[in-house]
Design a protein around this nucleic acid. Sequence first.
DNA 1: GAAGTTACTTTCCTTTGGGAAGTAACTGCC
DNA 2: GGCAGTTACTTCCCAAAGGAAAGTAACTTC
Lengths: 120, 120
Amino acid sequence: MVTPCTSGRHDHHDIYAAQCPCREVLDLLANKWSALAIGAMEEGPQRFGALQRRLEGVSPKVLTSTLRRLEDKGFVSRTIYPAVPLHVEYALTDLGRSVARPLAQLRLWVENHIDEIAQA
Amino acid sequence: MVTPCTSGRHDHHDIYAAQCPCREVLDLLANKWSALAIGAMEEGPQRFGALQRRLEGVSPKVLTSTLRRLEDKGFVSRTIYPAVPLHVEYALTDLGRSVARPLAQLRLWVENHIDEIAQA
DNA sequence: GAAGTTACTTTCCTTTGGGAAGTAACTGCC
DNA sequence: GGCAGTTACTTCCCAAAGGAAAGTAACTTC
């Protein structure tokens, strides 16, 4: 049996249910590069190059796909300024600004507790 | 140039720095199965089979490796009760209970905002 | 001695992630 | 005219991680 994602008239979603659309969204947000990219954009709209420099070690390929998926779900907007040289800005939407809070808490938790974490 | 992870005498860590150990930890925690498993264990110690049923759709292989990595970093303890049939319990450590809070906020955010998210 | 229970491991295949290099569009500059 | 410079990506290739299915091990109960 597959647990349904919603139950009752209050449309309560269960992220533990395999079929829940929440799963797909969690998979997108609970991701190293998504968490870092959204954090970077909290400081204001960012250009592709700026994000690439900020998220040290990200390849352009992975950054592009991360931003595209965030855009598809409505967390990020992509604006092209056809100036020369080409100028593309990525910014958080209202939804993106909303999810930035819990993601920031997770990033801060890691920074604040790293010393307590036993390393191999 | 590679941004150092820590700077100054206050040992401030920067999760955006590629070499920071925070990165490794973020990669472990900012993960669908880790976030769900830690949430499940908030309700108390859980056996392997119980976790597998709760995290609908997880394969035993992936569940094992998720739990092992969480154990390695000190978020989860693994206790074997050599009863028959074999009984293994996974429980959050203090550190695990601490990080469970921000992860719960992320899961709840997703459940509460799923209706606002534009699906393809 | 066959079946059941729990907790995995193994195998195989697909998907995702990472590094390096290439492309496209357009502006200067010589 | 043509070559370097800038920005924002693609493309290619390989390695690592994720997922489905089946197998294993230890021990009890029927």
